[in-house]
Design a protein around this nucleic acid. Structure first.
Length: 112
DNA sequence: CCGATGACAAGCA
DNA sequence: ATGCTTGCCATCG
């Protein structure tokens, strides 16, 4: 079931997201780009919404958009749950936005 | 089958 | 800096 390509893509996303070190965060585009699909940023988001269903412990709260803004409020709950998780990890979040985004930004292409 | 939507990103005015 | 438009793939009505 499902094409092997998509399966491989999802697997790659899971691996990268799970490889995100604590206190760090990355963007959808960075992940997609690291895999080799710079235009699949949207797909990453969809996969993320299914991350818990995938049977893996993916720190999806560490994955935000390219601006360092928390966008997963729809999946986590608009109560700022995601923000709390990030702050717990040591990341400073303000108004649904990561403080010092460039500082906490984790680029798999550069660091991995 | 077609249209609309979605945890996005990049380009342009 | 802000807002609009396009691209990409998958899912739903």
């Amino acid at each position: 079931m499902y094409s092997s390509d998509k399966n491989g893509f999802k697997e790659a996303v899971y691996t990268l997201v799970e490889a995100i070190p604590p206190g760090r965060a990355t963007s959808y585009g960075a992940i997609a780009r690291a895999i080799g699909y710079p235009t699949m940023s949207r797909m990453v988001g969809k996969i993320m919404s299914c991350c818990e269903e995938s049977g893996r412990d993916l720190p999806a709260h560490r994955v935000v958009n390219s601006q360092g803004q928390l966008s997963g409020h729809t999946a986590f709950g608009d109560a700022g749950e995601m923000q709390l998780l990030l702050e717990k990890e040591g990341i400073t979040v303000r108004n649904n936005r990561i403080c010092g985004w460039k500082r906490v930004f984790w680029d798999p292409l550069y660091e991995l």
